[in-house]
Design a protein around this nucleic acid. Structure first.
Lengths: 154, 154
DNA sequence: GTTGACTCCGTACTTTGGTACAGGGTCTAG
DNA sequence: CTAGACCCTGTACCAAAGTACGGAGTCAAC
């Protein structure tokens, strides 16, 4: 037993076949698997690796980070694993803080809206439309800050 | 005054020219602007609209949602604006909860690691590698849950 | 011995919020 | 009147994590 085809391997880990292949392309899973006939077969270590990936994802690691985690040695890399986890905690916490700021700003708008008499323009839309010179428009969350050159010209 | 070219309009709002054009393509800003000579000129309402977009982004709205917000009427759509904001609050809060779960799981691993004697395999990597039948692998945060068909076949 | 499900391989597409670039035209200052 | 800065249009590209699809081969059951 534990002679899995890619399909059963995928199902066992709760992912799609295409996902497994994708992980193979990304180098997270071995391309191989021993051949048996024309199809590849996978064993329990591939399954464990696949589950490792999914669990690490639920903890907020992306695939690149997971590749690094997978390269760590259980015996000799404890320090590094812990540092990794701690860095991720810091990262998660900063995202939480960002979201909390959003929430309180939104909450402020809603509260304001509820305390405004009916025949007035919507304070929410109004607040969005008004130009707050004080709050200088902290740059919106860019998906991936890369070449954010403001092109301030010569 | 307030006869802005696309470049000055963009600079006034703190975005790049390409971004303005992109918003135009997305229908968030009018394509037009009155022509003056060969170039388009924009006025204060385009600038206000552009700033509206950026502010709404900092509150966590995506461009599709912002398009809807922009379609609301300040006078007659107060209910809808508030509902919108409240839905966004709920959304933000659920993301916060998710992140908090991640954080506590990570914190648990780190704490565990710190209380383990040195000559043992890394508990973090170990925990990731172990198969927790209890915690059935709550699906990792997919970027955009769309066609997540597990292809459970016939 | 054929049908249907599965596998293999490669490539292209998805989403979101933009960037970048090419190949023009135009406007303005010196 | 010419150089350089700006504008226009259109298209292609970026990241991340997959998903979809086409065409061909193969395996197992009936």
């Amino acid at each position: 037993m534990s002679d899995l085809t890619i399909g059963t391997l995928a199902k066992s880990a709760g992912v799609g076949v295409e996902t497994v292949r994708y992980y193979q392309r990304r180098g997270l899973l071995p391309q191989g698997g021993t051949h048996k006939g024309a199809f590849r077969v996978y064993g329990t270590d591939e399954l464990a690796r696949l589950r490792f990936i999914r669990r690490a994802q639920t903890l907020g690691f992306n695939l690149e980070e997971i590749a690094e985690l997978l390269a760590l040695d259980e015996e000799t890399d404890r320090e590094r694993a812990r540092a990794f986890a701690q860095a991720k905690i810091a990262d998660v916490e900063s995202r939480i803080r960002q979201l909390e700021e959003m929430r309180s700003a939104l909450q402020g708008l809603v509260t304001c809206c509820e305390h405004t008499e009916a025949p007035a323009p919507c304070p929410i839309l109004h607040a969005l439309a008004a130009a707050p010179e004080e709050a200088p428009l902290t740059s919106p969350p860019k998906a991936h800050a890369r070449g954010t050159r403001a092109r301030t010209s010569s």
